[in-house]
Design a protein around this nucleic acid. Sequence first.
DNA 1: CCGATT
DNA 2: AACGGCTAATCGG
Length: 807
Amino acid sequence: MILEGLLLDVDQAEEGFSSLVLYLKRGGRAEAVLDSSFEPSFYFTADDPRRAARLVSKVEVEERGETVRPKRVEVVGRKLLGREMEAVRVFLESPRHLTPLRHAIRELPGVREFYGFDLPLVRQYLIERGLVPLEGVRVEGEREEGVVRAFHPPQPGPEHPQELEVMSFDIEVYNPAGVPRSDRDPVIMISLAAPGGFRKVLTWKGVEGAPEFVEVVGSEKEMLERFVELVREREVDLLLGYNTDFFDFPYLRERARKLGVELGLGREGGGARTRRRKFATATKVPGRVHVDVYAMVSFLAAIGAIRLIHYTLEDVYRHVLGKEKPDFEMGGIARAWEEGGEELKHLLEYSLSDAQATLELGLAFLPLFRELTRLVGQTLFDVTRMTPGQLVEWLLIREAFGRGELVPPRPKGEEYGERMEETYAGAYVMEPKRGLHENLVAFDFRSLYPSIIVSHNIDPSTLNCDCCRPEETTVVPELGYRFCGKRKGFVPSILERLIERRAELKRELKRLKPGTPEYLELDSRQMALKIVSNSFYGMFGYARARWYSKECAESITSLGRYYIHQTIARAEREGMEVVYADTDGLYCKTGGKSREEILRFLEEVNRGLPGVMELELEGFYPRGVFITKKRYALRDEEGRLIVKGLEFVRRDWAAVAKRTQQEVLDAVLGEGSPKKAAEIIRRVVRELQEGKVRVEDLVIYTQLKMPIESYRAIGPHVVAAKKLRKKGYPVEPGTMIAYVEVKGPGSISDRATPVEDFDPERMEYDAGYYVEHQVLPAVMRIMEVLGYREEDLRSPGGEQTRLGKFF
DNA sequence: CCGATT
DNA sequence: AACGGCTAATCGG
């Protein structure tokens, strides 16, 4: 039989063996396909490849009572940084033979370097078979006991669009001790939501007048079983959760073990597998794709697509979808469960809203991650958990395979240590001309670093080539490295294609109607291309990257500095005074130039730029205030305020300071009224001194970055963390410490009190600290550069405060 | 007060 | 677990 469908996921069929299961979706049903014909392999280089191959074919190693030998050895033509050469390819009977064989071969004479040995089986498989998850696949095989055995290697097939069954879930845990302990505190609710209005909260305690979505079962054990049953019944393809990698799944599995329940959530009855790693704990559910929406959010935060103070489900939901969801105080969960009644009903509602919000967010992010999956060619499960650098790397590995390039290993030990030591200069940031400026125009280079890589052919293989005449190469300013002008490098050629594809998509998008499914798909695709393109530079400078190259990284930043400097000089020559510049953009005074003259200037600059490099007009700004490097605020032509680098989005500032700064900026830049600004400042100072400011507005958040003992300088958050630990809270690297400064003797650190301990009835916050160290510094930074001094803020007849120092 | 740490 | 540049607060000698 021939099966064609959508490739949902690929998984190792059995730990330590090289057969794989492909899950494909067709006609609304999922099918498991077994492929036992894949031969994992790795490569090595040698002084004499033929001799080395002969030696290797005779290698035998004893490993746990098993005799391990290569399945097959071949001498093959490959490339190393673009140079043709011969390598030895060693095929394996089983992936578990890889390490013993590699270690044995390492001891043979004339053996040099190893390649492509640190690629997980599933990822190597997808690349070598040319298969791309969430695209079509074609299989010839035979059905045997529920699974299809493939006769031939599965191949890429025609597009095969399929509706995927999505469901989100969330658990609630009984937590009388504050922190839930999985060995004794039961899961009390599991809520579920799916598109089309499916919603359900499973629980094992009834309550009078419970909402219609509640299903009461007999016990925690029955609840887990019912959860499994529902996932299976609904034929779930994508199982969404929020922070489920780190919390819900590990907790559920621990409870299931305790209660003796089989958590057979997978297709074919397979159990969920949790892989615990320091940075990469994740749970895989066979035959379905478990997507942790929190991982998606972390990714979007890492690339700067969303920027929040906290990444809780509530905050992300509010920011991304603009909607509120019910909140429930963590400490109230145990009480609601014990006492029942109205509180328990609220908890049920809250639990459902978590699943519902997770579903909505997951569906909102899915189009982008689907396109990243198709671009990079690894599974959705993996791609949703990758960093931007890993996406680039897996794209490059796939491309390398296609071109016969050997894949360098990830650096370990000494090599990694050496790379960590290497530093290099980054971007240029101009000291701003402080103060208020009017009639500004902003220019910026479109995708500066990607366009430098492509236009100057920056690649490890083109560095200091010996094939070019001087006039054909790029000579990097300051550094003197040369990049080849004849042969296109590995990285630039790939990046060039990505940029071209994105430009095409953007042209197509102009013809489509926003909001249509087709528009959304193409828009997500161009976004995926942008994200990956923008991560190439960082990869060159990343010590753990396979294609790491300090020379390439520093050449890119050096050329970047060169171009921004050139542009600044040119603008100045044209009579446009530059007030500020950072990396790839600059703000100039229009100097009386008309829009047409400015466009003409732009055109002239662009005529002189190589390749795909382009300077763009970013916009006109009637007013702007520049405070320091990276800190400024602008008002655009529509009157909107644009603020960069100020305290707003920092969690280590109290909300009261951030809010006051925003209000002052609005008053000064928006309304041009320092008088109003002064009023605002006086009001807030008074409220602080009268003890009227709410605790939430005084909390300062700082993340603990190391174990408490490692701190040499004991800052406020470290002291607060110590107080927390004394009370029995788990305090470890990564914990967010929320503290309030209270009145009393001692240093600022001594008086930092965890919010949990701050009782407004018995304690007084340190109004003086919040006035002098939070609110005033934040607002005076703005007022000062605008030329206002303290006395300017004192309006005639204005009320006197006790702060003579500032007013 | 100033360099180091965060 | 992508880069470097940068500001600012606070510690601690």
